[in-house]
């Protein structure tokens, strides 16, 4: 173990850098400190004094750690993680509120005979004051987690831009109609979440996400960020299924009518969700491969120039 290792690990601990990056940083800073020690030795200091002077002129571990986070991420990834967790908690709250509000025990026959389940006051309050669109919370949560991997302003903008294809169907028709005829718009953008892995809408949506991913990579050169549209799509696809599954499980376990869904989770629904995720993952791997091809092509081009 090198004599500077403890100090260097102390600097890099909690900086959210990748393992490979940390190894490169350590090698680079270690080489600097060794040069510095050598310089002070030549100036006549003892080994111990030279070591102490080198560390003093390099800076304190805390200062440097803060500076690394500030210069690399601008905003600490810790805050994005906190916002992401809060968004997913809000998603759970929104789903629960939607489930509990004006709930009733559904029986076969006339809806007039259905027995209403009293709605708690706090659910009524949430229904009035809390944003209850689960897709928005799921998208925001995923975007916040993807923000952890952003380094530059362009990365952060790319994460925000990733939201566009998932929001076009939410725009007022006066704004979204010029994007194409209403029929086409409905087919393409109503495909989210992509529950049916193979359909015209889903295929168009995969195409849009793939093209957006490549465009984001060319712009940011950040492979993880180019996956943001895929991650949002996977979350939007999986979240409703997981919620239905959880609701169904709670109903089976407790027989509490508040958990009773309109329809039990079928094997068909399970298969659709799994196959949709598999298609998403294949698409993501293909995207990463294309990013690599784009990178090697641009390196060749730069060398030619």
């Amino acid at each position: 173990m090198n004599r500077f290792d403890a100090y260097l690990y102390q600097i890099l601990n909690g900086t959210y850098l990748h393992k490979q990056e940390k190894v490169a940083w350590i090698e680079e800073m270690q080489s600097h400190l060794e040069d510095s020690v050598q310089h002070y030795r030549v100036a006549g200091l003892s080994d111990e004094q030279a070591h102490q002077r080198a560390l003093a002129s390099f800076g304190t571990a805390k200062e440097l750690r803060q500076q690394i986070i500030r210069e690399t991420f601008v905003i600490s990834p810790k805050w994005y993680l906190i916002v992401g967790v809060l968004c997913f908690i809000s998603l759970g709250v929104a789903l629960f509120t939607n489930m509990r509000f004006d709930d009733s025990v559904v029986t076969i026959g006339n809806p007039a005979t259905w027995e209403p389940i009293p709605t708690p006051q706090w659910v009524v309050w949430l229904h009035q004051h809390f944003p209850l669109n689960p897709a928005r919370w799921a998208t925001l949560g995923t975007m916040s987690f993807m923000m952890v991997f952003t380094r530059k302003q362009t990365d952060r903008l790319a994460v925000l831009i990733s939201w566009i294809p998932f929001s076009v169907s939410l725009l007022p028709s006066s704004v979204s109609l010029p994007l194409g005829s209403d029929g086409i718009r409905q087919v393409i953008f109503s495909a989210l979440p992509i529950i049916q892995p193979v359909s015209i809408g889903a295929t168009c949506e995969y195409g849009i996400i793939f093209a957006l991913g490549i465009a984001l990579y060319i712009w940011t050169r950040n492979r993880i960020i180019s996956l943001t549209p895929w991650m949002i799509s996977i979350t939007l696809t999986v979240a409703p299924f997981l919620w239905s599954l959880m609701q169904e499980t709670l109903w089976e376990q407790t027989r509490n009518p508040i958990f009773r869904g309109l329809a039990p989770v079928s094997w068909g629904y399970l298969w659709s969700a799994i196959s949709s995720v598999i298609v998403h993952l294949i698409g993501a791997v293909l995207l990463l491969f294309m990013c690599k091809r784009v990178e090697s092509s641009s390196i060749r081009l730069r060398k030619l120039i």
Binding site: W25, S57, L64, Q67, E71, R151
Partner: peptide, 16 residues
Amino acid sequence: IKEGSLYPALKRLEAN
């Protein structure tokens, strides 16, 4: 300037 503070700045310039 603290010598260590050059590295975060160099990495930022490299990222850009």
